[in-house]
């Protein structure tokens, strides 16, 4: 591994200043489960690595205030998955956090890191999209709140600007009853990078939100507000046209060795149908 300067700021302002000064040569270190691999294989060669874990204002945790959940960016997957508030209000997010890597990985990998890597296969990206999350970023210009759908650009690229770092993810607590689910396709049952990720959320108003990843350069959000998908009584044929429209933005790469485009596209539909069933069941069970 090539060497670098390691800094451990204690305030967000200090971290932002270092990040801003370093520009492309500075990298933020949260859990390190992605960055350390890249430092070792040489695909990341920062001169400065900024460790966020000793910043008091970025202490990991989940808190509820003002009708929303705020998850600190440094909260690890293990804690996201186990958090009672996340599990109650955003079950698909808890499910997604619980399948990121192995236990060892989940003990280190952070929600902020998962989002900032902007991997098209990031498991937490799709639930954050269906739950309409907001990414909170601090930068030289102050605080910016970025809708998650405006955050991802392509693999490894986000709309964060120079000197900005993600401090938290905010999730509005649904005002109406919802059901949600997260599903994925992997090459084995043990931990694996997904060749399709998909989250769905249905609510009592009949709105269905799908988000899917690993089938294009960035995760995609698709919304159906016709009420058709959320209604289990609607016959399959009526739903399929809408489903096709929902999945129209999938464009998997033929270069991937993990799965072919044809398989990914077919699985998107299989997973979509399965997740939708689970979410509808959850919604029905919750409103009993």
């Amino acid at each position: 591994m090539h060497t670098f300067a390691y800094v451990r700021p204690t305030t967000v302002a200090e971290a932002v200043a270092i990040l801003d000064a370093g520009g492309r040569d500075a990298r933020v270190l949260a859990g390190g489960t992605d960055l350390v691999i890249r430092l070792r294989d040489g695909s990341a060669t920062p001169t400065t690595v900024i460790d966020l874990k000793r910043i008091a204002d970025l202490r990991p945790g989940v808190r509820e205030e003002g009708g929303r959940l705020t998850i600190s960016a440094t909260t690890v997957m293990t804690d996201v998955a186990a958090d009672p508030l996340v599990r109650r209000h955003f079950p698909a997010l808890a499910e997604a956090a619980a399948v990121v890597g192995s236990v060892q990985i989940r003990n280190r990998a952070t929600l902020g890191g998962n989002v900032c890597n902007a991997s098209p296969a990031a498991d937490t990206a799709t639930p954050l999209l269906v739950f309409d999350a907001t990414v909170v970023a601090e930068g030289p210009g102050g605080t910016r709140r970025i809708a998650i759908d405006d955050f991802f650009v392509r693999s490894g690229v986000t709309t964060l600007q120079r000197g900005e770092l993600v401090t938290a993810i905010e999730l509005p607590i649904p005002a109406v009853a919802t059901g949600s689910a997260h599903v994925r396709r992997t090459r084995r049952r043990g931990h694996d990078l997904a060749s399709v990720t998909l989250s769905v959320r249905v609510d009592a108003l009949g709105v269905t939100r799908f988000a899917y990843g690993s089938v294009g350069p960035r995760p995609v959000l698709a919304v159906d507000d016709t009420g058709v998908l959320a209604d289990p009584a609607v016959p399959a044929e009526a739903r399929s046209a809408i489903l096709e429209r929902m999945f129209a933005d999938a464009s998997p790469s033929p270069r991937s060795m993990r799965a072919s485009p044809a398989y990914r596209l077919a699985m998107l539909r299989v997973l979509g149908a399965r997740a939708l069933r689970s979410a509808i069941e959850q919604l029905a069970a919750g409103s009993d």
């Binding site: 090459r187 084995r188 043990g190 931990h191 990078l193 060795m257």
Partner: peptide, 24 residues
């Protein structure tokens, strides 16, 4: 093993060469 057109192993390493885990 999955090769590319110039004979390099594309799934070189544990991330993309999968072996059975305790869940498999």
């Amino acid at each position: 093993y999955i090769f590319d057109e110039v004979g390099r192993i594309r799934n070189l390493g544990a991330i993309d060469y999968r072996i059975p885990t305790s869940m498999d």
